[in-house]
Design a protein around this nucleic acid. Structure first.
Lengths: 262, 262
DNA sequence: TAGTGGTCTAGACCACGTG
DNA sequence: ACGTGGTCTAGACCACTAT
């Protein structure tokens, strides 16, 4: 990686820009974006694992042969995307789903008074089967590829509130069993990143109001036809690869889904 | 605003930091945060109006007697908060609800196929009354203070999909009538910022699934008891002052509420 | 005392949009 | 050709955390 983009040599990026040369648009890519890519690679490859500290800005600047300011900007963006966490005086760390309130990021259910209540998870089943067409499409698999299906119930203050159906690609989550799930303490996503090296980066949800189907209603302890929040989530890992489909039904009596538009 | 924080003179902020001196925490506030505050003041005071261009970075640096990099960082954050919009080669502009897809930011309803459909607004009524206790609380008003209540229906592809009850502080929205509402073309928030100088910065929503009340059901053309998405929004303007309470009921058949966790 | 991230500056050059 | 934002550098100093 050349040093001086500013002096004379460097009309475009130092490192390869990814693809075919030719007459298309110049595809200018700033240095810090390329550094960002290199750091992301190290995260993805597991060189730095969740919770661990990464090299200091000065070290990274030396390693990539750029100024500290440039790696700084790269890290800034990765921190804004919740991939890294900066701690003044200590260092920069790989984000994890274990600690902080990283949990609320993915389950934004609050009690009517605005408080965040704890919940417990009741595992109902964990099966391996062939992907239904729709799930395969969403997970970017071939139809009938192996998948894992987890069903669970979340109880808030002892009341069944959320029923989840979680679909995972079987190839990635090899060896995932109900027993291993029950043994693990902490959030599901923390287990996924610790035991399967798969970290959920972002998710996209489709939210609807639906009438409870009889089977769902029974598990949630509400009458059939009861209005439920239907939350269909697709979660993505590095490279925007989908690695989870989650279908949830929320009883929003006494609790609500909190969303901030900003 | 003193120049050199870096040299000798300036152990803490140049301008006043807001409050009482004394033994409490030093309340260190970086220069760029103070610049951010000054820029926000100019936005709030209307010195630069929505859609207008603001002075260039170099000009602002001269005006505040700081380096360009410092105003740059201030503007960066304001742009991230959607208060300003940067356009390379042209300048920096005050954000507005008129253009772009600033609309989707506040009405994230998509068709099942993921497409963003246009909608038309049917105004049902616009009344002035005394604030109910709950509304007064949310708008930070005294009970029985004057408020404006707007009811409207949004139709997607000719189908009634959203019923909104919009509560506004009467003191701010003086002279708002059904006629003025009907005359205005474009999004409601665009009208608010253009005609009443009140710009919505961020909003907080509580989402639930509810059974349609008879009166609501009739307006939306669904049977009573039909599952609806209930969206209760409080919108805030500069200084995090609440200036709108909006209660919406969404029919999520053929459409869904899109939310991204990132 | 030493190391980390955080702030601030000054100056150079690049990419973009106008004349 | 010029002005705007965007990138990159180099160096100084500040604030926080650990030892």
């Amino acid at each position: 990686m050349n040093a001086n983009q500013a002096s004379a040599s460097n009309p475009n990026g130092p490192s390869g820009d990814g693809a075919a040369a030719g007459g298309a648009s110049p595809t200018f890519s700033p240095l810090y974006q390329q550094i960002k890519g290199l750091i992301t690679q190290s995260l993805e490859s597991g060189e730095w694992k969740p919770g661990e500290i990464i090299p200091s800005e000065v070290e990274l600047a030396a390693r990539y042969k750029v100024s500290q300011g440039t790696v700084r900007k790269a890290i800034d963006e990765l921190a804004a995307e919740n991939l890294l966490v900066r701690r003044q005086g200590k260092g920069t760390f790989v984000a994890t789903h274990n600690e902080d309130r990283a949990q609320f990021r993915f389950l934004r259910l609050l009690a009517d008074d605005g408080a965040e209540h704890p919940h417990i998870s009741k595992l109902l089943e964990c099966r391996r089967l062939r992907a239904p067409a729709e799930i395969a499409r969403q997970l970017d698999l071939k139809p009938a590829d192996p998948v894992v299906l987890i069903k669970r119930l979340l109880q808030f203050d002892g009341v069944s509130t959320v029923l989840d159906e979680i679909w995972l690609p079987g190839a990635v989550f090899r060896g995932l069993t109900l027993e291993r799930l029950s043994d693990y303490k902490g959030p599901l996503y923390a287990m996924f990143e610790a035991e399967f090296g798969t970290r959920m980066i972002r998710a996209s949800e489709k939210i609807r109001a639906v009438a409870a189907e009889p089977s769902v209603a029974e598990l949630l302890g509400v009458p059939p036809g009861f209005p439920l929040l239907s939350v269909e989530r697709v979660s993505f890992t590095y490279g925007d690869r989908p690695v989870e489909v989650r279908r949830g039904w929320y009883v929003t009596t006494g609790y609500y889904y909190q969303n901030d538009l900003s």
